[in-house]
């Protein structure tokens, strides 16, 4: 019994310490970005790796999810004779929920795990240590550009995802199922409100991007530098990011859309 209390106290303290470490780490990463020419070049390089390289998977999945939404929405709405509302359904679903959430999940799988593995490998091969010994702060040189790159890329990816998804929905419902395209767009425009839906969706994307990148770079930086450590940390990145995204999505949705 005493042993149990001792153990749970210990893991509680460990958890608090990890949260503290992660927060200090986050703070240093945020302020660590240098906006000199060299810093911007590093940032651009990371945006390329985190954002641009995730573009293909985002566009393809966005297209398919939009098409599925169009198809499903049409088959239900056509029973009520209101298949012209398929546009507003696709757009609202994508802009409010699926855009940010699915992008964040894909982002965690595609970019987050890569970030963790890359930083972990740099740690395992002592590249981070040797950088420290050269008097270069790896938080500034390695972590900060990656963190900011994720933070910037995520809303962009989410916006592209929603746009492509809406086109996918249009492709199916207008071109294939024959919904009148004027009604498709005008119903959408009547239903989607910029301040409420689009902005809130973007806020979600920003929050998710922040959380996912934070988890990814911290797991990479804090891992045990062995091959098991790297694989465990990569798994943790994906699991923790996905769970945080879904949990936070519920919270944000309750705050943003629950009140009306």
């Amino acid at each position: 019994m005493i042993d149990f209390i001792r153990r749970s106290g210990r893991s509680g303290l460990d958890f608090c310490a990890a949260v503290g470490r992660a927060s200090i780490f986050l703070l240093r990463a945020i302020v660590g970005l240098s906006l000199s020419g060299k810093g911007l070049k590093l940032l651009a390089r990371q945006i390329y790796r985190v954002g641009v390289l995730s573009l293909i998977i985002i566009i393809v999945s966005g297209l398919f999810i939009g098409m599925v939404l169009g198809l499903q929405g049409y088959s239900i709405l056509v029973d009520y004779g209101s298949e012209q509302a398929v546009g507003q359904m696709v757009a609202l679903t994508l802009v409010r929920e699926l855009g940010p959430v699915v992008t964040a999940l894909l982002f965690a799988g595609r970019a987050g795990s890569a970030l963790t593995a890359e930083i972990g490998l740099m740690k395992a091969t002592e590249q981070l240590s040797s950088m420290e010994m050269m008097g270069v702060d790896p938080l500034k040189r390695v972590i900060a550009p990656r963190f900011w790159a994720g933070f910037i890329s995520m809303p962009i990816l989410a916006a592209i995802f929603s746009m492509v998804g809406i086109f996918g929905g249009m492709l199916i419902s207008v071109d294939w199922l024959g919904v009148y395209d004027g009604a498709f767009w005008s119903n959408m425009q009547k239903a989607v409100e910029f301040n409420n839906d689009v902005i809130n969706g973007m806020i979600k994307a920003v929050v998710f991007g922040w959380v996912c990148t934070w988890i990814a770079v911290f797991q990479g930086y804090d891992l045990v530098p062995t091959s098991e450590g790297i694989s465990a940390a990569t798994t943790k990145t994906v699991v923790y990011s996905s769970l945080s995204v879904l949990g936070l999505d519920f919270l944000l949705t309750a705050v943003m859309f629950g009140g009306i």
Partner: peptide, 19 residues
């Protein structure tokens, strides 16, 4: 500390070149 480290060098076991 980082300034002081600029005056010292360390050769790691693995070399630790930036890959």
């Amino acid at each position: 500390l980082f300034d002081a480290r600029a005056k010292m060098g360390m050769l790691f076991q693995s070399g630790a070149l930036f890959s």
